[in-house]
């Protein structure tokens, strides 16, 4: 029973973090007007969060559907894809998730992970300086979930909100031709290992 709850705790913590990260990426990449963002403090770090209800609801609905996959360790990667006017990917922020076997985990240590997120976010923010050349072309975004094999027959797991259906992503959104790979941060804790890197479209 404790292991079951543990999966939920991991998913809650990760989704809370992913929500902050998505807001920050959208702000840094100027996908939306800066006026809809407000400065907040998360994980002891100043971040920018949208205060637009429609956008916030979309992000929350997306992560609400991702959560069961993380809970069951069925999500291998969560990817925030930034796209240009033609809906071609400009950048892919890849959050690669792996969890240790549940039985080896000390439940009480799960909360210590939060203190590490701040560093992760700062590094995330530094992506601006690394890949700022792409900024002007960012027009929209989508969130992709790469499932593990075990989840391939469980599309219904992700369709937990009635009016928020999921589909298999187009090939052009999933792969970029000869991307420049920028590793940003790797973080390991007792409960989860997360690696963040950016795939950037080659400059023409």
């Amino acid at each position: 029973r404790q292991d079951l709850n543990f999966g939920q705790v991991v998913a809650d913590i990760l989704c809370e973090f992913l929500e902050v990260a998505i807001h920050l990426i959208l702000y840094v990449r100027e996908v939306y007007p800066s006026g809809i963002f407000q400065k907040r403090k998360k994980y002891n770090v100043p971040v920018q969060m949208s205060c637009h209800p429609e956008l916030n609801q979309y992000i929350q609905d997306t992560l609400h559907c991702v959560k069961p996959l993380i809970e069951k360790n069925d999500a291998e990667k969560v990817v925030v894809v930034i796209m240009d006017k033609e809906h071609h990917p400009v950048e892919r922020f890849v959050f690669e998730i792996s969890q240790p076997p549940l039985l080896s985990i000390r439940f009480a240590s799960s909360f210590s992970v939060k203190s590490n997120w701040g560093v992760f976010l700062i590094t995330n923010r530094s992506a601006e300086t690394l890949t700022g050349g792409q900024k002007k072309r960012c027009c929209s975004f989508t969130v992709l979930v790469h499932t593990r094999d075990a989840a391939t027959r469980n599309m219904e797991k992700v369709q937990v909100i009635k009016d928020f259906p999921w589909i298999v992503a187009d090939e052009q959104e999933v792969h970029m031709k000869e991307p420049r790979l920028i590793p940003l941060k790797s973080m390991t804790s007792d409960i989860v290992k997360m690696q963040l890197y950016v795939e950037e479209r080659a400059q023409k």
Partner: peptide
């Protein structure tokens, strides 16, 4: 997709920059 796994995405797109701008003007 590689390894027999799926890559999934929401069917609905997020609000566009233009939609967000128009709602800001309404306020």
């Amino acid at each position: 997709a590689a390894g027999g796994a799926y890559v999934l995405k929401p069917l609905m797109s997020p609000p566009s920059r233009e939609e967000i701008l128009s709602t800001l003007m309404d306020l």
